[in-house]
């Protein structure tokens, strides 16, 4: 049995209540939508890139606490990162919440608070929606990302 507080840690509750980087970037050069048809979570990512760097990033949409906090934390972590670093972080995060052996939590910083999600398999997609959306925005292969 898991303590529900392992999932809903204070940082997650806070980022859900006051999501960072929430809103539209007017001069975004990439806008991509993510959608989870199972629960109806919708998310839009706005990216402003400068060369190989993410100069600015924001999101809007609606979703559960896990998906909103995850997007808030992710956008915080991505600001100023190179696209290459962003992809590396994407892989580390994915390992964190799917791989029981865990990931390099140090490199993930605050993002590691979402580690509790791995004990709630039904919620993994909530936490990864924004990441898959970002991944698609970077690789540019789809206009809308679906978790299904």
């Amino acid at each position: 049995m898991f303590d529900i507080k392992d999932l809903y840690q204070e940082i997650i509750v806070d980022h859900n209540r006051n999501p960072r980087n929430f809103g539209i970037i007017d001069n975004a050069d990439k806008i991509i939508e993510g959608f989870n048809p199972l629960c109806g979570d919708k998310l839009k990512l706005y990216l402003k890139t400068e060369g190989q760097n993410i100069a600015d990033i924001s999101f809007d949409g609606s979703g559960c606490a896990i998906s909103v906090a995850s997007a808030s934390l992710m956008t915080d972590a991505m600001k100023g990162k190179s696209i290459n670093d962003a992809e590396l972080l994407f892989n580390s995060f994915h390992n964190l919440i799917t791989n029981e052996n865990g990931a390099d939590e140090k490199s993930l910083g605050k993002l590691a608070v979402l580690a509790g999600v791995k004990d709630f398999p039904a919620r993994v997609k909530c936490a990864t929606l924004c990441w898959h959306t970002l991944h698609s925005a970077i690789t540019g292969d789809k206009e809308t990302v679906s978790t299904e």
Binding site: M1, F2, I4, C39, G40, D41, G63, A65
Partner: peptide, 20 residues
């Protein structure tokens, strides 16, 4: 509070409801 979070918290209490 999003229904999905309600569902997870209730499930942890042994309660099965539908959310969505």
């Amino acid at each position: 509070i999003h229904p999905h979070d309600v569902g997870t918290i209730l499930n942890n209490e042994g309660i099965a409801i539908r959310t969505g």
